[in-house]
Every structure is written in C-alpha cells, then in structure tokens.
Design a binder for these strands. Structure first.
Length: 863
RNA sequence: GCCCAGGUGGUGGAACGGUAGACACAGGGGACUUAAAAUCCCCCGGGGAAACCCAUGCGGGUUCGAAUCCCGCCCUGGGCACCA
C-alpha cells in the first residue's frame, strides 16, 4: 500500500494503463454536451520541449480532464505544424530529409507530453506536412483562388536575406525577421497574396463576439488600423495632372501649406520640373535603397526634396508646393498627403527643417494659446474662410459634404492592414496548386489531381535570387495545362500559417480521405470552446485563422464566423541564466549588461564576474529544464502542481527548485493522509451520511469537503488553477488535522473522513492524475478517476451554524464575535452595542448609525 | 508618443467595496533521531511594555467602510510606432 509519492513507480504504470485502456479516446456520445479544448499547433523543433512549454499543456489537460468527468464529450487533440524553416534548415544541415526529421521531433514532443500525463487523443494526431493533410490545404487555397481572394502581384516585398524567403508584414517585427531577427530588405518579386484586406471590417467587427483577452483584441484592432477620413483631388498647377490625398483631418485643410508625395508615387516623375529633376531622381533612388527599418526608424530626421511643382488647394485656392519625402508611404492611403504643419507633428517637423509656412487653423476651445503643432481635435476652426467658428467635428462633416457635392473626392475608410503575402521561396512547404500556361494564364490544378506533391529530392537549398528551389526541379515544373499544352507549375510554397489557418477543422474529422471534413462533425465540435497559447501570435496565426474561417463561411463550408470562442494566453516561464561581466575592451550591444554564458562556464569564473538574470527558458539561452529532468527529479504530478500553483495562469513565473519541492511535499501529504485513513474507509459512505449524527469536528470536515468541491470546480472553470490548488492544499490540511484528532471509534467520524477522502481524490484527479488513480486503486475502488463523475457540492453543508462577525467602530475592527448564522440584523446590532470592546471605543460619543452586513460585520458609526 | 497588463510581507502570491497577507517558499523555535535527512507541531508585515498605532507605488476624492471604485501622477513588463 503506497504511503508516499514514488513517481518513478506509479507514473509509468498509470500511463501504460491509460494507454492500454485507450482512456483518452474522444467521446462521441450524442446525449452529452461537447467541449473542444485546443492548444496552439506546435512547431516541433529538434531541441524538444522544456518545462516552459508545459505552461499551457498542463492547464488545458486539467480543464479537459475535469470536463470529461463532468460528462462532456471532450475533443483534446494534438498535432504538428510541420512545414517550415527550422525543420528545413536542420535537414539541410544534417543532410537528411525534413519529413524524417519532423517525424522524429514530433515523436519526442509526443513522448514528453505523455511523460507528464497529458491526455491527448492520439488517434487524431495530424501533421500538416502529411499529403493527407496538405491536399486539403491546397483545396482551400483553390477556394480562395476561385473567389478571387488569392492573386499574384509584383510589389516590393520584405525579403529576409538569411532565411532567403519573403515574409508577410505580420512576420516583420520592427524591420526585422520574426524568426532570425535579421533586418529585412525590400525586393521586387512576383508574389502570391490573399486578399485579407477585403475582410478588414468583418475581422474588426466580429472581435466583439469572442471572449478573448482584451489585449489581443486591441492588438488586432490596432493592426487592422481602421481610420475614417476623406480622399480628394489636388490639381497640379499649369498641367492637366492631379493627385489624390487621404486625410483624417479635413477640418485643417486651410492650413495645408504644402503637399508631399511618396518617392514611389507614379506622378513624381511626371510633375517634377526640369531644373529639379536631377535632385528629385537622386532622392528617389536613395529612398529606394534604404531598408524598411532605417526608413521608419524612430526619431530619424525628415528628408525630402522640392519637386518644383505646385498644386492648388481646392478650398483656399492657394498654390502649395509639392514635395517628395519618404515619410509618406506608398502603401498606405494614396501615397500622397496634404501637409498641415500647424496641426501635425510630422508635417511640422518637415516644415521647420525646410522653412515652409506653418499656419494655425484650429484654436483650442478654452482660448488658451498652445504651442504648435496643436493636434487635438477638440478645437474650433480659424483662418478658414466661411468655415471659421465650426468645431473640428462639425468642420469635418461639412467639408466632406462639400468635397462630395463638388465631385472632387469622397468620404473614405482606410485600413492599415495589407494583403497577406503567403508565398515562400522554400522547399519545405505546401505547394501552391496552380500552373502557368504558355500564354501567361494561371490555372487551378483540378481537385482530382490534388495533392500537388512535393517532389522527393536530395537537394533543395534556397537560392539568393528569390526563386524557389523547386524551380530547378524539371520533373516538378514541367506539366501540362487543362488543354494538354505544356505548362509550368507554380514553384513557390505556402507559408506555414496557411496550414495552421484550418487545422482545427481537420481535428474534428482527421482520417477523412474523401473530404477535408464531414460538415456534421465540424458543426458538432466547432467552434473551439477553449483555445490556449502564447500571446506572440496576436496578429499572425490568430488573424489568419479568423480570415480563413470567414472565407469558408462565405463558401458555405462552415456554419460559424469565428473559429475560437474563448482564447487564453499563458504566461512565460523564466529561468535563472548566467551572464559574465564584459571583459576589458569588449563592447556590448545597447541595453546589454553582460555576456550570456553556460552554467559550466559560470561555475569556473570567479563569482564576482558572474551574475544571473531571469530569462525566458529556451534552448538558445542554455537555461532549459526538460520535462525528462523535471519528471525524474520531482515527478509529473508534482511538476503539474508546481506549474499550476506558482502564479495565475496568464502570469510569467520563475522556475525555482525550492518551490517545486513544495509541490512534491504536497503530493506526498496526499499519500500520507490517504494512507492514514485507509483502514477507516467506508465504501458506501454515501448511504451512511444521510442518517448519521455528526459532532462538531465531523461537521466541520464535511463543511470543508463541500467548500473544496465548490471552490475547486469554480476555479478550474475560471482558469484560476493557482487558487484551485491552494484550495486542494487547504482541504488536505483539514483532512490531516481531522485524521490526527478524530475518534474513529465513531462511525460518523469514519463516514465524514470517507466522504472527504473520496472527494479529494476526484478533485485532485485532473491536477495530479497519477496520484489520484494510484490512491483510488489502493482504496479498493474500481476504474480510472477520469471515468468517475465530478463531485457536486451540497449547499446545505456549506452553511455553518455559527459565523464569525466582525465588530467595527468607525470602520476600525475592534472585536470578533461568534454568532448564530440565523441572527437577524437587530440581533447583531444588539450584540455589537453590548460588546465590551465596542462600548469602550464608543465611549461618550453618540451612535449616529449602525451598518449591519448579516453574517459578516457590524460597523458602529459614532461622532 | 500611443495601446494593453501590472505595482500587496524576506519571496511567489490570496482577498463578491466588509477582519489585508489565504495557500505556499524561505527563515526561526520545538518534537522524533546517536546524528543528519525526511516527517510532524508552533511562530513569522512594521512599531510599541501594553492599550493601541502604522501599513497594499505616490497624491487627492467617493463611501459608514477602499488593495478593490473615480481623478491626477510615478514606476515596471508587454505590444505598436512617420499609417496622414
């Protein structure tokens, strides 16, 4: 009989029994409600998992297990986002095929997840690089293609010279590649795009329907960047040419003392005067050479050149010089602006530098003079002719009306969101299923010919030119079009984000070889009830998946508009990471205080040269604790308890051995208290408790039992795992105290203890499933705890006969009394006023008011 | 600069507007032990002999009562950033 926690013995034993019993097979009983609990699609890497990755796998497992016990059909699957660069890079390095590598990596992940007792239904395992999967990724691509939502275009794209592929805007972070961190370059390349911009408004609107962290919603709103304004035409003086500007501040149009065109604007070369042509061309050339990061650098001084041309302000009739400057971006709005230096900081800066006129046309409502630029919109128009005196809001609406009636422009909504650049010039991705005919047409590969398989080749190194390595594989490229004529296959592959934009649908029906999914199954399981992963995908995966879902909805393939009803982001796990102080003459990057070193190196250096910092646990930081290490040192259940208990789910935590030991001690106490009560256990306590007479301490234990049921149930539902574990600890402490002091000659004591211990095992089962099953079995109880019914608290047992009432005088606590729970307000008021302590503090003062909160407190207000 | 989270003991963290510090970690004391480890019990925000007083980043406010609500600051973490 187990009297302590021996993870090395019990954990492998139960994991094997669960596997043999196929315990985690997804339930499909039509009489039960469903619950779809999903972790972000992981990218298996060669370094395997760390205990940091478990910060989301453990909580979703706890929730899933509880939902199973509550009688839900629970879909809790796992699969692999298998295409993409890390596997391909590793494969090239190791001279092996990425498919083999990814299989190994996934096996490692799977083994590690099993090691900590995560209950996935492995019969539904999928891998996005499996042709059975990517056939359907291609099928969905063709749906987008046929709906006109996938197109090829040639634009300056973000090119990562290290990864040798283009990137989507969402994959560029501060001008650098999100994966390798290198600055991206602009490269003119023919690329495939998805028209996500067409869905901008819907992606914005439907955020209101989903229960996601506000921060993530804010980031998506910000990324989509809706702004309302007007677009209108300016005529270039002395020519028949004109350009259109977009502004959100049409109320400031009388202050538009110049205009600016982006260097890439097509009109630049047409309007430039001969004497300015050389300097303008020089400037445009320089601008094109700048990379995105440098061009957009914070605090960079404004640059620009005068074109020599003037444009007429359609309101004031004044002639405004037209400048060319790279602070105006071609990709947003119209690539041309009216510059209002009096009310826009950027225009102000530019005007200052080049000595252009700065004019105030809005004054603050309070009449107090402000320094220009005055950007607030709660002002009044001045120096604006007939519009003087209007507020900004009134002016915006009136001027927009005028523009529309004069036919020179219109109201317009702009979005910052750009189309999703989806093609990649790499081998290890899902091939784009189109062919290019000899006469330049693009044809979809017929559905019957899907999947377009990646050719099994030896060499697929990326090129420097922006051409996919597949282009060099003639057997792949050479094909025929729909009329049998020679044609060339598309050689770019899709970004991995295409695969992860629909994988959650495949999990509903993962082995379907006829279709991407059976609509009935998707309708049953979707949307995902609880989606858990890191916040770093706020505008990547989470935006793309929403977009694809809406397209599939429009196509009539799914009956919902949003894929993930509830989203949660887990916090990071940090670990102590050694650094050494810089050596003489060694220079560090900005913000760095030392050089990161290995633990071995730290041990050899003199202590005053070494310092530690908390860094995110990752292979590159050399601070990883693997699940294997943690499980062998502490045990899976203790590891689970630790990660759940340490801090709230969404909070970053610091890996600390001492605290994990605290979790080990707790699991141990569960074994100890169970062992001490085993001989007093009454199996059919349920029928006994209805008639037994319980004494005070027995009733107190029953009270603790039912409070624990209530608290743990609610906390798990609310993702408050830390307080759920705290409640379990408190409950174990109550049972231990009872076990030590109770008189087990009394049957009622044995009944109360039996009720407590059996409920404890059920409540702890999702958190520490090996422990629960082990003790369960040692009590002679049958089956797995997962198949038992989740306990329900009896409200009548959660009331106490006597309650503690706090007595306050003027809001300060002066005494505590025990009073019958049934005491009325009048009773409590009387008890308070009779209380010796309270009377002392009242003294001679007059009682003005008595506040009574029944069952809680009495506050006597005097003075 | 803008948008989100957050600031509570030595530490991680609890706390429907109602006893601030649950539950843990570390620390101290004790029991058991030849001893240590493990385990168990007790103490553990600060000041004060006590009565009491002071304490939830800072300053105001609302309230019988504020860690919690409101206003204005400061600091930390994360995200976005020349988007007109």
């Amino acid at each position: 009989m187990p009297d302590r926690y021996e993870p090395a013995i019990i954990e492998p034993k139960w994991q094997q029994r669960w596997r043999e019993a196929d315990l985690f097979r997804t339930g499909e009983d039509p009489n039960r409600p469903k619950f779809y609990c999903l972790d972000f699609f992981p990218y298996p890497s060669g370094s395997g998992l760390s205990v940091g990755h478990l910060k989301n796998y453990i909580p979703t497992d706890v929730l899933s297990r509880k939902k199973v016990m509550e009688g839900f059909n629970v879909l809790h699957p796992m699969g692999w986002d298998a295409f993409g660069l890390p596997a391909e890079t590793a494969a090239i390095r190791e001279k092996r095929h990425p498919a083999d590598l990814i299989r190994e990596y996934a096996e490692t992940y799977k083994r590690q997840q099993n090691l900590v007792g995560i209950g996935y239904d492995w019969s539904r395992e999928i891998s996005s690089s499996d042709p059975e999967f990517y056939k359907w990724t291609q099928w969905i691509f063709l749906i987008l293609f046929k709906r006109g939502l996938a197109y090829q275009g040639e634009f300056p794209a973000n090119w990562c010279p290290v990864d040798k592929t283009v990137l989507a805007n969402e994959e560029v972070e501060g001008g650098r590649c999100w994966r390798c961190g290198n600055p991206v370059e602009k490269k003119m390349l023919k690329q495939w795009f998805f028209k996500i911009t067409e869905y901008a408004q819907r992606l914005l609107d439907d955020l209101d329907e989903i229960e996601w962290p506000e921060g993530i919603k804010a980031m998506q709103r910000n990324w989509i960047g809706r702004s309302e304004g007007v677009e209108f035409r300016w005529n270039v003086v002395g020519t028949d040419k004109s350009f259109t500007v977009f502004t959100t501040r049409i109320d400031t149009v009388f202050g538009a003392t110049f205009c600016v065109l982006s260097p890439e604007h097509p009109l630049v070369s047409e309007i430039v005067t001969e004497e300015r042509r050389e300097s303008v061309e020089q400037y445009v050339l320089e601008a094109s050479r700048l990379n995105e990061q440098d061009r957009l650098a914070v605090g960079r001084e404004k640059t620009g050149v005068f074109s020599g041309a003037y444009a007429e302000n359609p309101f004031s009739g004044e002639k405004a010089p037209v400048w060319i400057a790279d602070y105006v971006l071609m990709g947003y709005g119209t690539g041309a602006i009216m510059a209002v230096p009096g009310h826009d900081e950027r225009d102000f800066e530019f005007a200052k530098k080049f000595g252009l006129e700065i004019r105030q046309v809005i004054e603050p409502l309070d009449g107090v003079e402000r320094a220009l630029p005055f950007e607030a919109t709660d002002g009044r128009m001045v120096n604006s002719g007939e519009f003087d005196g209007l507020t900004c809001a009134e002016g915006q609406s009136r001027l927009a009306d005028v523009i529309e009636s004069r036919g020179i422009g219109a109201r317009r909504v702009n979005y910052r969101l750009r189309d999703w650049l989806v093609s990649r010039q790499r081998y290890w991705g899902c091939p784009i299923p189109v062919v290019h005919t000899a006469d330049g047409e693009i044809e979809a590969v017929p559905e019957s010919e899907l999947p377009v398989l990646l050719p099994p080749v030896e060499s697929y190194e990326p090129t420097e030119t922006g051409e996919s390595p597949l282009a060099a594989i003639e057997e792949f490229v050479q094909t025929t079009d729909s009329r049998g004529r020679p044609a060339r296959r598309e050689t770019d592959t899709m970004s991995g984000f295409a695969c992860s934009s629909w994988y959650f649908l495949r999990f509903c029906d993962p082995r379907n070889s006829e279709r991407a999914w059976d609509p009935k199954k998707v309708e049953y399981w979707m949307p995902v009830d609880c989606y858990v992963g890191g916040a770093e995908h706020a505008v990547l995966h989470l935006l793309y998946a929403r977009f694809w879902t809406k397209v599939l909805y429009d196509e009539g393939l799914v009956p919902f508009k949003e894929p993930f009803s509830v989203l949660r982001n887990q916090g990071m796990l940090l670990a102590q990471t050694p650094f050494r102080k810089p050596r003489e003459g060694e220079t560090l990057h900005v913000g760095e205080e030392g050089v990161q070193i290995s633990f071995e190196e730290a041990a050899q250096l003199p202590p005053d040269q070494v310092f530690y910092r908390w860094e995110k646990m990752s292979k590159s930081k050399g601070n990883v604790v693997t699940p294997e290490e943690a499980v062998s040192r502490y045990g899976a259940d203790a590891l689970r308890v630790y990660e759940l208990f340490e801090a709230p789910f969404e909070q970053t935590i610091q890996w600390t051995d001492e605290r994990v030991m605290g979790a080990v001690r707790f699991v141990n106490r569960v074994f100890k208290v169970s062992d001490s009560l085993r001989k007093n256990f009454i199996r059919n306590w349920r029928s006994g408790v209805t008639s037994a007479q319980f004494d005070r301490s027995e009733s107190a234990l029953r009270f603790a039992t039912h409070c624990a049921i209530e608290k743990v149930s609610k906390d798990i539902d609310d993702f408050r795992f830390n307080t759920a574990v705290a409640a379990l600890m408190e409950f174990v402490n109550s049972i231990s105290d009872f076990a030590r002091t109770a008189d087990f000659n009394r049957e009622s004591a044995r009944l109360a203890a039996s009720e407590a211990i059996e409920n404890l095992l059920l409540l702890i089962a999702p958190v520490a499933p090996h422990t629960a099953d082990e003790v369960w079995e040692s009590y002679g109880l049958e089956g797995f705890t997962l198949n038992k019914t989740w306990p329900k608290a009896d409200p009548s047992l959660m009331k106490m006969d006597e309650v503690t009432v706090v007595l306050q005088v003027n809001g300060k606590v002066r005494a505590n009394i025990q009073a019958p729970a049934s005491s009325t307000q009048e009773d409590l008021e009387r008890l308070a006023l009779e209380n010796e302590k309270v009377r002392q503090h009242i003294g001679d003062l007059a009682v003005r008011k008595v506040i009574v909160v029944p069952g809680k407190l009495v506050n006597v207000v005097v003075g």
